[in-house]
């Protein structure tokens, strides 16, 4: 996984509430067997008309937001389907940090597995950043220091220390878990006397 430490860039503001993963990446693009190439389909129904023309009114299609590295969004971002295609599409577009008052659980988890940082701030701060976003002002984030800097103002945020560590170092979860493989083995040893536990063959 790519590590994440510092990032500066343009912010796109998507103030709607409950932006779901169906909206982030619609179903027709879930047929892929790859992780890459989804960026052009990010927010597909908002970005393209039915005839597949670019919708000029949508923020991600406008200068300078077509080069956004951040999204600042309304409450409960990423709700709905568990599709990891959502963070893949964001990342492929170039967005690796999302700021909101709240995130849906599965999406929140999925971000960390892909080097995308979801940041929770309170509503007042989200609105402030969203205003700067609309003015096209760049912001920066420093994960080590747990802060966002926007127009000389510092916004501190909380993050789980383990997740922070993994993100800063681009650590692969599976590798870390397998360091404890002996514990998994002994757990399974205890299960072995429960014959009912393993499903019958079909």
């Amino acid at each position: 996984m790519k590590s994440f430490n510092k990032l500066s860039g343009i912010v796109a503001s998507l103030p709607q509430l409950n932006i779901d993963t169906d909206a982030i990446i619609p179903k027709q693009f879930l047929k892929t067997i790859e992780r890459t190439g989804l960026g052009k389909h990010l927010f597909h129904e908002k970005r393209y008309s039915k005839e597949n023309n670019l919708n000029e009114n949508f923020v991600l299609n406008q200068e300078p937001w077509n080069k956004s590295k951040f999204i600042v969004a309304g409450d409960n971002f990423g709700c709905g389907s568990s599709r990891e295609h959502a963070p893949w599409a964001l990342l492929d577009f170039g967005i690796s940090c999302i700021i909101s008052t709240s995130f849906a659980d599965i999406f929140y988890n999925n971000c960390f597995k892909n080097g995308v940082l979801p940041v929770i701030l309170d509503e007042k701060n989200v609105i402030e950043i969203s205003k700067l976003a609309d003015e096209g002002i760049e912001i920066s984030i420093d994960l080590e220091e747990q802060q966002i800097i926007a127009q000389n103002k510092i916004y501190k945020f909380d993050i789980d220390p383990y997740r922070k560590h993994c993100l800063l170092n681009g650590l692969d979860d599976i590798g870390i878990t397998l360091e404890n493989e002996n514990k998994i083995n002994s757990y399974e040893d205890k299960l072995s006397n429960k014959k009912w536990y393993v499903p019958e063959k079909i």
């Binding site: 568990s82 599709r83 990891e84 599965i106 988890n109 999925n110 597995k113 892909n114 979860d173 599976i174 878990t177």
Partner: peptide
């Protein structure tokens, strides 16, 4: 509960 693809691999 539902999980993402990275967790499926995990």
């Amino acid at each position: 509960f539902g999980i993402g693809t990275s967790e499926v691999e995990h």
